[in-house]
Design a binder for these strands. Structure first.
Lengths: 191, 191
DNA sequence: GTCAACCTACCTATCACTAGGTAGATACCG
DNA sequence: CGGTATCTACCTAGTGATAGGTAGGTTGAC
């Protein structure tokens, strides 16, 4: 496998399990099987590694959201799929999604990475508010406030659910925390 | 002021702004005005400092929740007060509550502190589910699923709202994320 | 005289990062 | 085709800074 990709994989796993500041180039080197100094060939500064991590992550997320959009399903089903992405990212309660993991320890991140993170968050919120607006049209969601507000609420809910579920190392906390929201999408089960 | 308290204050501020691993005894010493080594007199290991931090924090929270309970208000008002605690803890978007800050970088914490954190979380969820159950009785909350599930949902919501609001350094994100939930408590405004 | 509460001075480990070198593949050139 | 220059992808060996933590001494209040 491509070394750069192997490094990104290892770093992503470490960042999502233990935090970006909690793994070192030494850990990475051991995991991938090259020397510590060689990592600097691929990522001169650790900030470059963070940038590469978010870049890849944002692209992956963007693809997933586009795929969901392309399916001809009610808005409720799309929202269910969105929650599922955050649930799957947890790997049974052992890790967070990268954006939550980096947001948590954001003080040590470089400015470009902070900008990336802000952009990522805005993109997610925009996608959600668009789908929530569509949900008003097709009536596949019970209740619902202003789509902009509710987009932030859903994002906060899934990110917070990840946090508490990983703290307890128990994915069931994520499920319990999202149960009420998913119940409002129950109508879509009938389709 | 008592040196031990001054150390706890400084450490709490640092932990909530930058994370528990992101401040050092050297920072603390500078801030409080004693030498680095002297901190070890009060907190031999950094784990002892973490323990003291959570201990004090949990006691404070417990008092606040008891106070809210002692008021003769509808359940909706109690829930509103709960959200307000998490909002106030943010200090205009610059910091997190201690429990969110520590949960975020939990891999570096000692076992006793992890246990404290779990206990703290369970206490909060228990309080919430009791109040949510009361809300069913007095009808001061619109809608509502199983109180146990919803307790986890509310906790995830406020913790996630803190995370996204601090990432943007903007308390308004917290407000937008909690708007929909607070709207369900609107009935209590009439009391 | 004891002891809490501080101090100076130091330790070891680890961090991100750098300097400088090398084996081997690839590209260019006469 | 042979020779040479360059590039990629790694290496060994080290830097200075900083981390948490320790040993042992000083001081002032009771």
């Amino acid at each position: 496998m491509d070394t750069r990709t192997a490094l990104l994989d290892s770093a992503e796993r470490a960042a999502r399990q233990r935090g970006f500041d909690a793994f070192s180039y030494a850990d990475l080197a051991r995991d991938v099987g090259i020397r510590k100094a060689s990592i600097h060939y691929h990522f001169p500064l650790k900030a470059d590694l963070a940038f590469g991590l978010v870049e890849r992550y944002a692209a992956r997320m963007s693809d997933q959201l586009a795929d969901i959009n392309n399916e001809d399903t009610p808005a409720a089903a799309k929202l269910r799929a969105f929650v599922a992405i955050y649930r799957d990212a947890m790997a049974n309660g052992t890790q967070l999604c990268l954006c939550v993991a980096l947001s948590a320890g954001r003080e040590s991140l470089s400015e470009p990475v902070l900008d990336q993170l802000t952009q990522f968050h805005e993109d997610c919120a925009a996608w959600l508010s668009q789908v929530l607006a569509a949900a008003r049209e097709d009536g596949s969601v019970i209740g619902g406030a202003d789509p902009m507000d509710e987009a932030d609420a859903v994002l906060a809910l899934v990110e917070g659910a990840q946090l508490v579920a990983r703290a307890a190392k128990d994915i069931r906390l994520f499920d319990r925390a999202t149960t009420a929201f998913l119940a409002r999408l129950a109508v879509a089960d009938l389709n």
